[in-house]
Design a binder for these strands. Structure first.
Lengths: 241, 241
DNA sequence: CCCTCAAATATCCTATAGGAAAGAGGTCAG
DNA sequence: CTGACCTCTTTCCTATAGGATATTTGAGGG
């Protein structure tokens, strides 16, 4: 592990990425953390002023954000935070996840050997942070937005590793498109943290299926996991009304 | 079918979409039809001059194109036509298609009733244009780029209708990402027109599977079709060397 | 009290200009 | 003759300005 031998090399590399990517990361982080009300206007000029850059890179970053579904654009009217997922879109999202993640897990089973240790690490992180969440819940504390953000990151990392395990660049690209939608769902559906223990158990079952060496087992476990998440989400939506 | 009652309404609607989308369509069409050599530089200023617009909308269109995989961008160096698909990416693309299109076909089977007539129309168009292609081939004529373009459009339209048939916006989004990659593959792999008769037969089998009402039949037929296309592509790649 | 219309403001969209980096070609030293 | 260095050109990247459009606020009439 060679740490930055040349201290300025890292900074230069960041600069080398261009302003557009930095603005993209900043706006994406803003959308992920700060719970902005859907429909909130995202003024190009205002963002440019805040970030001390010209409107052009902001405009490019928003074009890129538009493809993720986090923001919507209306010609001659500007950008807005995307509306929340409608109920029928919720079912569609889970259908898409079953297709995409189920298939990806089948493919990843080909490379289970290299994948298992990485999933073990991810599951360990998941367990650790879920314990922190449980303690906070037991104490009746309000979960900090930072903790929630970290939990979601660790949770999704498990799924992301499986996409990487397919060694398929096309499926990996699509996983990014799905991840933003999943995050948006979690903002509307209140669950996602409360079922931490369930998620840990089900992820463990998926890992065990990879270890078994059985070709179809991981895909079955993943599809079962997604179906259970869907059921929990349905319950939470029903409880809202 | 109400033809444009107000002749200018259509033009106004196009204007309403903003310059960015028109530039996007034009550049996309350019990349699709004109077989540009991979690595060709896409100068922002040059395109802006050709289209008589400012560089800003061109820049936005290229950001959007970048997500489709048709162009690649290097910071501070500009945009280039994407390199051709490597052999290992070819296999990965077919794996992704099996996952995505196979799953989408399973979902579309739920709405087979509304889908079948549209597929019938698409297949009829496919048959008609394949006859034109066959005649041209029999006469030993060189296929015009317009004919090839139309054939690909009709061929893919069949697959696109199935994605629409899922009534799932997320899968429909991903289908657009796949379609550009499939087109790029067709530019490198020389087949795709020569197997017109095979494609028609296999599409017919998929349609018949939808008609049968059997739940798993369409997905099986689609996966079988994609595997056969994969085999034909492999043969063409092997023949090249 | 509500609706309609009009003016003002804020914003988006496009165009133009300047600074900076990368690439090409020529020149000079070894 | 070969390699390195320097200069020039092209292009990208950012910033600023002006025209067009949507939204909002206010007043007047029904």
């Amino acid at each position: 592990m060679s740490e930055t031998v040349y201290p300025l090399a890292g900074v230069a590399a960041l600069e080398r990425r261009g302003l557009r990517d930095r603005v993209y990361d900043l706006v994406l982080d803003m959308l992920m953390t700060a719970d902005l009300a859907p429909g909130t206007r995202l003024s190009i000029d205002a963002i440019a002023r805040d970030l001390r850059v010209s409107p052009t890179p902001v405009r490019e970053a928003l074009v890129q954000l538009e493809r993720t579904g986090l923001v919507v654009r209306e010609a001659l009217k500007g950008y807005r935070v995307a509306p929340p997922l409608a109920a029928e879109h919720l079912e569609a999202l889970f259908d898409a996840r079953l297709v995409l993640e189920g298939g990806a897990t089948d493919l990843a089973a080909r490379h289970a050997d290299g994948l298992v240790p990485r999933l073990e690490q991810a599951l360990a992180d998941h367990i650790a942070i879920s314990h922190v969440v449980d303690e906070a819940v037991d104490l009746g504390e309000k979960l900090s937005v930072g903790l929630i953000r970290d939990y979601f990151a660790v949770d999704w990392n498990f799924h992301h590793l499986i996409f990487e395990g397919t060694q398929n660049p096309f499926l990996l690209d699509m996983s990014e498109a799905i991840s933003t939608r999943v995050h948006r769902m979690r903002q509307t559906v209140k669950s996602g943290v409360s079922d931490a223990d369930d998620a840990v158990l089900e992820h463990g079952a998926i890992l065990e299926a990879f270890r078994s060496g059985e070709k179809d087992a991981p895909g079955r476990a993943m599809r079962d996991h997604i179906e259970r998440v869907r059921e929990r989400a349905r319950r939470d939506v029903a409880a809202d009304s």
